[in-house]
């Protein structure tokens, strides 16, 4: 039985909840994982102490973890992690780390896993147009998509040890650049409301923004909207040549549901579609479909949601 290691997902200096999902995924591979927490301050690892289903927690402490550097992180984590199968989250940064860690150990990496059955792992391929199941023999590095596995309960009491480690930085930040918008990025959001060309004009995205503000959601856009209107930046684009998102709730407004767009959002947990065309392909993927113009539907949605949140 190969050892299982979960690399904790860190967001804004704390352990992200997907770490608990990774423990569940490790349990599905047949064991209780060691959770390794990359940190500059070992107290960050305390939150992992209560994750049930793990064997122990190691706070891997290094100045190298102040800022992501692929080479340094792989080196510093490799020094701490025992041999075995390593699980990471499937954010762009963690997938990058997973690939480097695997290469460092001459292992293969399997990315974006959404199902585990013994040694068989399933991931979406061709932008979600098909699923691929692979068999791993021996240790591997595996990245796991968020919102797929249930989070392990917080009823554990794991022993936490601290190990100092180091890695040589190969990049140096010169400046952090202000984001074009202060809004949440679609890649980070649990709820996304996106507009397509059916919104008629980029000015009408304010109605999506109002709902996003009510829900704490990000605003996205289809490729058609990004290509048509200069005011809608590529950073908002969800789809094959934009961002692949996996939120709990995706609200598509005035989006027909081209293959391009579906590729980026079809794995969302719940999908709401609002479109005036009853035959729009997006409705085949919607949990809740409303055949209506956005002018009719959005004010009702906004006032109902505002009432709930008040």
């Amino acid at each position: 039985m190969t050892e299982l290691i979960v690399i904790a997902e860190i967001a804004k200096g704390t352990i992200h909840t997907t770490t608990s999902e990774l423990v569940t995924a490790a349990n599905a591979l047949g064991g209780s994982p060691i959770i390794i927490v990359p940190c500059t301050d070992a107290s960050v690892a305390d939150a992992a102490g209560t994750i049930a289903g793990a064997s122990k927690v190691i706070a891997a402490k290094s100045d190298a973890f102040a800022h992501y550097d692929a080479a340094a992180w792989a080196e510093a984590l490799d020094a701490v992690a025992p041999q075995g199968t390593i699980l990471t989250s499937a954010t762009p940064q963690s997938k990058d780390l997973a690939a480097r860690l695997a290469a460092r150990r001459n292992l293969s990496v399997v990315q974006d896993v959404v199902a585990i059955s013994q040694n068989q792992l399933t991931s979406p391929v061709y932008s979600g147009k098909a699923m691929q199941t692979v068999a791993i023999s021996g240790p591997a590095v595996v990245s796991v998509r968020a919102n797929v596995f249930d989070a392990a309960p917080s009823t554990g009491s794991n022993e936490i040890s601290v190990v100092d480690t180091t890695g040589n930085m190969a990049t140096a930040v010169q400046e952090f650049m202000a984001r074009a918008s202060q809004r949440l990025d679609v890649a980070e959001a649990n709820i996304i409301i996106s507009g397509g060309r059916g919104m008629g004009s980029p000015d009408n995205f304010v109605h999506l923004e109002a709902i996003a503000d009510t829900l704490g959601a990000a605003v996205g856009a289809s490729r058609a909207a990004v290509d048509t209107w200069e005011a809608i930046p590529h950073s908002m684009q969800v789809g094959q040549t934009g961002k692949t998102v996996n939120p709990n709730l995706y609200i598509a407004v005035g989006i027909s549901g081209a293959i391009q767009h579906l590729a980026g959002m079809r794995s969302s947990k719940y999908i709401v579609a609002i479109n005036k065309d009853a035959d729009a392909p997006i409705f085949q993927h919607a949990d809740y479909g409303i055949v209506a113009t956005w002018e009719e539907a959005l004010p009702v949605l906004q006032s109902t949601l505002a009432g709930m949140m008040a």
Binding site: I271, I274, F283, A286, D287, Y288, G289, I290, V291, A292, T293, E295, E296, A297, L298, P299, V300, L301, T304
Partner: peptide, 10 residues
């Protein structure tokens, strides 16, 4: 999924 007609269904 569930489908609805008209904006009031929102």
């Amino acid at each position: 999924g569930k489908s609805y007609e008209g904006g009031a269904a929102a």
